[in-house]
Design a protein around this nucleic acid. Structure first.
Lengths: 344, 344
DNA sequence: CTCCGGGGTGAAAACGTTTTGCTACCGTAC
DNA sequence: GTACGGTAGCAAAACGTTTTCACCCCGGAG
């Protein structure tokens, strides 16, 4: 038992196989297979025998062999930039919950946003015979390529918005109406000079769009000097906020931040200026991360429905994998509800 | 191409197989296999031909078939209570990073701490032919059972501390010296009446042990009235803190909380009493979650090295999977460094 | 000329399932 | 007595690799 240690410790010495079951039950492998799958009628008596032998031997079907024959692995892959990022962790959980019921397992790949790794993982996923993949990689660089590599793999993209790959569904949060709600809320609270701290420069994002709409609807001008850029981080938010406050007579009375970290940085800045949130300046964020309830004051923000995104991605995938749906690529956008706390 | 839609959309119509490559290259499958694996010498010329055909056809080996034959899947499983919990997400990432280099993928299972699901997933993992598994399930209920199900699967447990399963390694954080460092720090800062807010009742944890040691070493008495219980949550911490403060003349001047959430709740309570942290009461937590830097004041805490835990778990697993190590079960405990911020 | 040794390659048997024809049997209807 | 329909079950061919033998050929040694 410990002689042959050269290459590896023989991971599974002698597992019971279907053939052994068949032999002991005095039937053919075919029959055993059928009592397991129920794909063909087997006499009650025989079933009973087979089942009892299965129990006795503790037989468990070998999924690898099964996959080889059926060309289905009952496994879906999710490729994310970084599972460590709560958003993706929650998304992954939603996906897992969605597909678990149908017997699918979840295979995770972290790309760190690196397109090469994205490609490599996509190939890996294909090679491993996953039945479906959800691409939550930010860049949306690589999509299940239509090239020689893998044509028909059911796929759904998350958030990427980009050009629609046929046979790849898309699910995304409704950033625009989310930010619209946030800014409307600020206006309702009496704010008139509302700034926005967005992501890095190549802007024109959906979140900015909601901001513009809300302003327009309420007859407020959009003033370029009130639109500044952060980098999604806390220090970035702090810097941007200081910039907004640098001209004392032209200060905003509220600011909409394109994500929570930025908002938290903005709050830091406000406090450094010995001003109060929300009395002097109201602040709202976007995402509703855990930290939003920790910060002081608790952050009013827009919820980015990570779990639901993962879950519907899973459902979309399921329908394609089951063959229930086979049409053009679908696009579902999920609502981003405003959650009002104390910062605005 | 769209006739037969009944069961499923033919996930991979016609992938190139090794046999096709062989045929086109005018060699036997054996040879192709060998140029791929390098397990046998193949003449330069032949190699060149084969490789070019492979490129031309875009051939990719089918991993399922390979796994069936070799009985290795190049996949490790990690079963955690909930990937949504940052600790486990980070741990998973550490594991993934560790095994990725060796070509292993990562399969994730969320048990929600439910022992039945734990069992089910373990079975699933076995059936899928994973090459190794790390059990981070809190309860440590199910271990890779020595029963008929799966004997030789390399496994490592995380944190569970429980009885040592042969051939299952164990990696855990050094809770005791971590909390010892935390409490020593408080003492060094001048605290004399140091309370502890632990987890739920059946206590006697390693974290309490460090607390007792530090007290003893410094000639401080351990007073039962200063030892109270939370439930790992923020509200729980708040309640416990209020309890500690209920007898004004016997209040602590510092408190060590068995996790960060509890500490944050404790800070809430202190603020509600119009006292200051750390001036009136110093507070230190345990875990060093993201929120620790968000809360005000930033939390002094002990880092729970999730990433390193995952990473070493991965390394332990690798050594067993490669057959490099085949001995008794190992146990590695990782340091939990104190990170001093402003709350103590 | 024969024998040997070794470089280079192939045929075929695994691996453990699922699935496609068949066959064998039994009873009933003609 | 033959035909027929339905029920139960089996043999064997997949699925796409890896791996074990065995083969062939060629050059050099005897």
């Amino acid at each position: 038992m410990s002689d042959k240690r050269s290459p590896a410790p023989a991971p599974d010495e002698n597992r019971v196989t279907l053939v052994q079951v068949a032999k002991l039950a005095g039937v053919s492998p075919t029959t055993v297979s059928h009592v397991l799958s129920g794909k063909r009628w087997v006499a009650e008596a025989t079933q009973e025998t087979v089942r009892s032998v299965i129990r006795e031997l503790g037989y468990r079907p070998n999924n690898v062999a099964r996959s080889l024959r059926t060309r289905r692995s009952r496994m879906v892959a999710v490729v994310v930039p970084d599972i460590t990022n709560t958003f993706y962790a929650v998304l992954t959980r939603g996906l897992a919950d969605a597909v678990d019921g149908a017997g699918y397992g979840t295979y995770v790949c972290n790309t760190d946003g690196n397109p090469e790794r994205e490609d490599a993982f996509l190939a890996d996923v294909l090679d491993r015979g996953a039945d479906g993949v959800v691409m939550a990689a930010g860049r949306t660089a690589a999509q299940p390529r239509t090239g020689p590599a893998g044509p028909g793999l059911p796929a759904v993209r998350v958030g990427g918005s980009r050009d629609d790959e046929p046979h790849a569904d898309l699910v995304m949060p409704d950033d625009t109406v989310g930010s619209h709600a946030a800014v409307s809320h600020l206006i309702r609270r009496g704010a008139r000079r509302i700034a926005i701290i967005e992501g890095p420069l190549p802007a024109g994002s959906a979140r900015e769009e909601g901001y513009r709409q809300a302003l327009a609807e309420n007859g407020l001008p959009v003033e370029p000097e009130l639109m500044v850029h952060g980098d999604w981080t806390r220090p970035g938010g702090r810097r941007a906020m200081h910039l907004l406050m640098s001209a004392p007579e032209r200060r905003p009375d509220a600011v909409f931040c394109a994500n929570d970290l930025t908002a938290i940085g903005a709050i830091d800045a406000v406090h450094e200026l010995r001003l109060r949130v929300p009395d002097d300046i109201a602040i709202v964020g976007f995402d509703d991360v855990d930290a939003a309830t920790i910060v002081n004051p608790p952050l009013t923000t827009v919820r980015n429905p990570a779990y639901d995104i993962g879950r519907t991605a899973g459902e979309l995938l399921l329908s394609r994998m089951a063959g229930t749906y086979d049409g053009e690529s679908r696009k579902v956008v999920l609502p981003c509800p405003l959650v009002v706390r104390e910062s605005a």
